[in-house]
Amino acid sequence: MKKSALTKTTDTLFTPQKAKIIRAVQATQTEKHFTLALANKEKFQFMPGQILEVSLFGFGEIPIGIASSPTRENTFDIVVRTVGRVSAAVNKLDKGDHLFIRGPLGKGFPLDKLINNNVLIVAGGIGLCPTRSLIQYILDRRTDFKTFTLFYGTKTPEQQMFLDDLKTWRLSKDVHFFETVDVPNASWQGHAGLITKLFKQTNISSNTRVVLCGPPVMFKFVIFELKKLGIIDQNIFLDLERRMKCGVGKCGHCQINNKYVCTDGPVFALSEIRFLEEAL
């Protein structure tokens, strides 16, 4: 990310960049979807699955996964859930406002291991946000991948996000899209039940590369299903969430045993973390 401290006189690990909000949409009751561009007009370079430290001066910084693919325009997306002081302040911003970012940070999804393979993405809740960077990437470079299946589960239909994307994916021939809600409402026509139930709806081959992102509780149950299908740990990739305060492998908050989620991850192969007791 940066050169030796000896040669560098301007930017430090903690120097942010200014970004302008190009578009702001209230995605759900608690989530806001921002499209951003660097204020200096340069293209923001990143890989799917990388993260940002998003900040507002006086409020602080929060780690947020990038929710769009670098194969798209000059802009990049983030989705912020109103949770605490920083996210609440960010979610009051609108088109034309500025915020600050550091990054891209961490390693993204292992594209080299996904290309030329069958890919399944399992996204639970706001786990769809960081995985959307990969979904868009695969759809934009569709011929680089074999079959592409996407599972998306939320607690309720109201929590579904990226509604325009969902409409496109439902009709698309490029992705086998399966969705479910834990608790349906009266107008919900689709599948109801936990995300693990979707495995019965389709045939996932044992050589599929699987990417998981969702609440901590989801991982264990999905991995259980994947094991039944005979998918090996090396082919299962987990996008983990932790309290990444510095994002550069120093502050210690995101540590799982000896690994820093911010720099060693946030995406890990299950084989890397299977025996790290605090990982899942």
Binding site: K8, L13, F14, V248
Partner: peptide, 11 residues
């Protein structure tokens, strides 16, 4: 060593 490795921390 720890502040220098990977991402050198100027502060």
């Amino acid at each position: 060593f720890l502040f220098k490795e990977k991402n050198p921390d100027d502060h």
